[in-house]
Design a binder for these strands. Structure first.
Length: 841
RNA sequence: GCGAAAGUGGCGAAAUUGGUAUACGCGCUAGAUUUAGGAUCUAGUCCCGGAAACGGGGUGGGGGUUCGAGUCCCCCCUUUCGCACCA
């Protein structure tokens, strides 16, 4: 049985294969040979097959930075093992791979090495594709997409046009970080230091307003909060909820003394009578006209320094409040009082209306501001039955509940009804109305960059922003471009590219030179996998119907709020345009943890703790690296790498090899029926637990269960199990259970033990069915009954598994050990079938 | 500050979801084997006492629920992650 006959593994167009020497596990020759055989035979191709249920298994695509990192392996290998498991369960599994190929690093490389970003990117793609192939994953490379290829971004542009026509795209002025010396926009990572300087020339960065493109993600804020139809981690749902940031309250319209409307959003309309001043964001459009001449120098200076700061700096907590009085006043709409209007950087233009009513008695920030500048504090909510203190006595804002005081007609209203009463009052008096506000902003998709998908718009002096006709797509990036060391987009500098005729009136216009955010490319890449070369649309509807939605999506938690909100928005918006079906793109999401360096620090070149997968593959082989990545930590948690730990997985696979290729034991055939039954039990118990573990993404325990089974098989072999039907089943099951984790060695040993004459995909272990689990075979016929006295273990006795309650209790009470702790009749006896008897004295 | 998750041997970690705590692996100890080894095999390895049988203790700390708690509840400590002047 274990005698290894050399299988004739040679497809017609291959030279005869050298068979590895029996007795020696040599992944370095075995793995590439199988890879080639599989690739030649198209073993991992996934095509529509109506006889089987499809499963679209997706893992987040990499950015082609140049080298595949161990983190990529950690993200992809367990997902691959699970995809392989699903395929063996009989599903038709598609597991595609591609590259998120637009982005800033390619431009940096272009400037630094005077190389076109496309050349740089595609050579990285090629390198990483080869590295990905050593991973032993079941990627169907026919379905690969590369987002920087015109055949891909043609459809990214097409989607933009659909969203534009569906009124989801619009233009507005929005600030960017700008280097006045380089004369270019800077990305966040190009602004360095606390004093915010350009990373190239060191010039202090300023804000500049540019007209940019947005998508109306806020239209979908409410629907994006609904996760009821998807199985996503709680953690991600909470992150998205916080990101969307829904709050209920009221829009209240204040008026300036000059008569301008000054709307605010408040979650506490019940404190409206205590609004003693207003604060505007320094960027607020009314600041200019509200500023009096006397205040103008101070205001201008304040705006200057406030807008130089990052949002992060402005938002950093426990900073002393700063601000300047505009010199103007507004009228409190319920009291009619004049209240001063200030500006301060703690009010953000990007949230609400960019203006607040300040209620210093009941909001901590407003309280601190009022104390800082000597503004009036008026208590309007106070616990019933007490006299309100004077405002001077307050040490902090009173944010608690109480009864409304000093609140005109609503004085005396208790806080549990106040909100509703106040809202009714405001609506009745036409002062304000109920409103929901979101933290979520519309999605800014414009980038003043070369290396992205051009926004397919022509600006015409007569017709405005006109979409490029679909038949003219793609709007291709010019390849002959000049790079300024400043990083200014070559699209703006190009002599001819931006010249275009208006599709509507035929006059001369100019192309939009902004390109799209790369999150736009990654919002729909999963759809391109369906049919990467389809040219009648972004995807073939037949493929969509068969595969979508994505059944499992895996990737890092860091994408919880950006990519994963954008792709959900994108799907929903396209659904409403009739392009897609279903409410959600990804039915199930799971996140892997982070793999750290051996020193428990984040891996980085400067720390010198980077683990290179290529080196590991050279030393141990792909199967060992895969197994260890699955084994060493809980996948969703991650943890530090251990160079010693990988030896354990290496040993395990070598022991597997030796067990199944060695000479038969001299005791073969000696095993007792009872011993063989025990072997079979362990086999079936292992099938059960590994099946459960794959369903739950608990990859570490799939490997430890395999190790346990190997240990049991070694012992059974010593006892003479070889030659039996039970042994044959154990080997067959073992190799099929091994296949998802260690695909190469499992295939090699499968061919040997099955003794096929020739290899074909139908013979591949990867096209076998997952072992059937027989609960009867897995059931223990003898169990250890634990005898407890008062919850403490006092004895253990071996009994038949089907022992009756009466017998178990009788045996327990008869136990000598129990006698030592029990004085007289027990008060109570608890029996847990198959487990224990607990005697309460 | 708010939110989420976690805390178990020397280390990475298991624990069928309330029922024998520490499976599996690393490391370590002893032995076997080998020219040698960081190779392979066997045995041992939570702590204290004991030659052993056995006894006592034990899952960050404190309380609670329960016949029974690593697991559930409350309080505290620590760590990690996310969000943060959100009106």
């Amino acid at each position: 049985m274990t005698e290894s006959t050399s299988p004739k593994i040679a497809p017609s167009d291959q030279p005869p294969e050298t068979i590895t020497t029996p007795g020696t596990y040599d992944p370095a020759t075995l793995e590439p040979r199988w890879r080639q055989l599989w690739d030649n035979a198209g073993l991992d191709h996934a095509d529509i097959d109506e006889s089987r249920e499809g499963r679209f298994v997706l893992t987040m695509l990499p950015y082609p930075s140049g080298d595949l990192h161990i983190g990529h392996w950690y993200a992809m290998v367990p997902g691959d093992a699970r995809a392989r498991y699903l395929r063996m369960r009989g599903y038709n599994v598609m597991f595609p791979m591609g590259f998120d190929a637009f982005g800033l690093p390619a431009e940096n490389a272009a400037i630094k090495h005077n190389i076109n970003p496309r050349t740089w990117t595609l050579s990285n793609v090629e390198r990483m594709r080869d590295q990905l192939k050593t991973m032993g994953a079941m990627f169907d490379w026919r379905r690969e997409m590369v987002s920087c290829e015109p055949e891909y971004y043609r459809w990214t542009q097409w989607f933009f046009l659909q969203l534009f026509k569906g009124e989801q795209a619009y233009r507005k002025y929005s600030p960017v970080d700008w280097c006045p010396s380089c004369n270019t926009t800077l990305a966040r990572e190009q602004v360095v230091g606390d004093d915010r300087r350009c990373e190239r020339c060191g010039t202090p960065v300023i804000k500049r307003e540019l007209e940019q493109w947005f998508f109306r993600t806020t239209d979908y804020a409410e629907e994006l909060l609904d996760f009821s139809s998807i199985d996503w981690p709680e953690r991600v749902k909470v992150l998205q909820e916080n990101w969307i940031g829904r709050s209920e309250g009221a829009h209240v319209v204040f008026r300036t003394e000059q008569g301008d409307e000054l709307p605010v959003f408040t979650t506490r309309p019940d404190t409206l009578w205590g609004a003693t001043f207003m604060v505007l964001a320094p960027e607020h459009p009314l600041v200019e006209s509200l500023t009096t001449d006397a205040q103008r120098p101070a205001i201008e200076e304040y705006i200057e320094q406030a807008t130089r700061q990052t949002d992060v700096q402005r938002e950093s907590a426990d900073r002393e409040k700063t601000g300047v009085f505009t010199g103007s006043y507004a009228l409190n709409p319920v009291t009619g009082e004049r209240i001063p209007i200030w500006i301060a950087d703690y009010v953000l233009m990007t949230y609400g209306s960019g203006a607040i009513m300040a209620v210093p008695a009941h909001d901590q920030r407003d309280f601190e501001f009022a104390r800082q500048f000597g503004l009036e504090i008026r208590i309007v909510i106070h616990p019933a039955g007490e006299d309100p203190p004077s405002a001077d006595q307050l040490e902090e804002a009173a944010i608690g509940k109480g009864v409304m005081v000093n609140s005109g007609p609503l004085t005396g209203t208790a806080s549990d009804v106040a909100l509703g009463e106040v809202l009714d009052y405001l609506e009745r008096e036409s002062i304000g109305e109920r409103a929901v506000n979101y933290r979520l902003r519309d999605w800014l998709i414009s980038r003043q960059r070369y290396w992205g998908a051009p926004i397919p718009i022509i600006h015409c002096p007569n017709c405005g922003a006109v979409p490029v006709p679909e038949e003219d797509l793609p709007v291709e990036l010019p390849l002959e471009v000049d790079w300024q060391p400043t990083g200014e987009s070559p699209l703006k500098l190009h002599p001819t590219w931006s010249k275009a005729t208006c599709p509507e009136c035929g006059d001369e216009g100019t192309r939009e030179t902004d390109t799209m955010d790369t999150f736009m490319c990654s919002s729909w890449y999963h759809l391109r996998y369906l049919s990467p070369r389809y040219d009648q649309g972004p995807f073939d509807p037949a493929e969509y119907d068969y595969w979508m939605p994505v059944s499992t999506y895996t990737g890092g938690i860091e994408h919880a709020t950006m990519h994963l909100i954008y792709t959900r928005y994108f799907h929903k918006a396209c659904r409403d345009l009739g392009i897609l079906q279903g409410d959600e793109p990804m039915a199930q999401l799971r996140n892997q943890g982070i793999i750290l360096g051996e020193d428990s620090e984040k891996m980085s070149k400067s720390r010198g703790n980077v683990v290179a997968p290529d080196e590991l593959v050279g030393e141990y082989g792909t199967d060992t690296v895969r197994a260890f990545l699955m084994f060493f930590a809980r996948w969703e948690q991650g943890g530090p790498w251990s160079s010693g730990g990988i030896e354990g997985c290496s040993r395990w696979l070598r022991r597997t090899w030796n067990l199944l290729t060695g000479e038969p034991s001299q005791k073969a055939g000696d095993a007792s029926p009872q011993r063989l039954k025990e072997l079979r039990r362990k086999v079936h118990q292992t099938v059960e637990s590994i099946t459960r573990d794959y369903e739950r993404f608990e990859f570490n325990t799939t490997i430890s269960s395999m190790m346990e089974l190997l240990n049991e098989m070694s012992r059974a072999r010593e006892a003479g199990a070889e030659g039996s039907e039970e042994w044959r089943e154990a080997v067959s099951y073992y190799l099929r259970l091994l296949a998802p984790a260690a695909p190469y060695v499992a295939e090699e040993l499968w061919q040997r033990t099955e003794a096929f004459e020739n290899w074909s995909p139908a013979h591949s272990v990867h096209h076998q069915l997952w072992p059937e689990y027989d609960p009867e075979a897995a059931a223990e016929d003898e169990i250890t009954l634990v005898i407890q006295v008062n919850g403490k273990v006092r004895d253990r006795i071996a009994v038949r598994a089907e022992i009756s309650r009466e017998d178990a209790q009788r045996l327990a009470l008869a136990s000598e050990a129990v006698g030592r702790y029990l004085d007289g009749e027990p008060r109570k006896v608890i029996y847990v079938p198959g487990r224990l008897v607990n005697i309460v004295p």
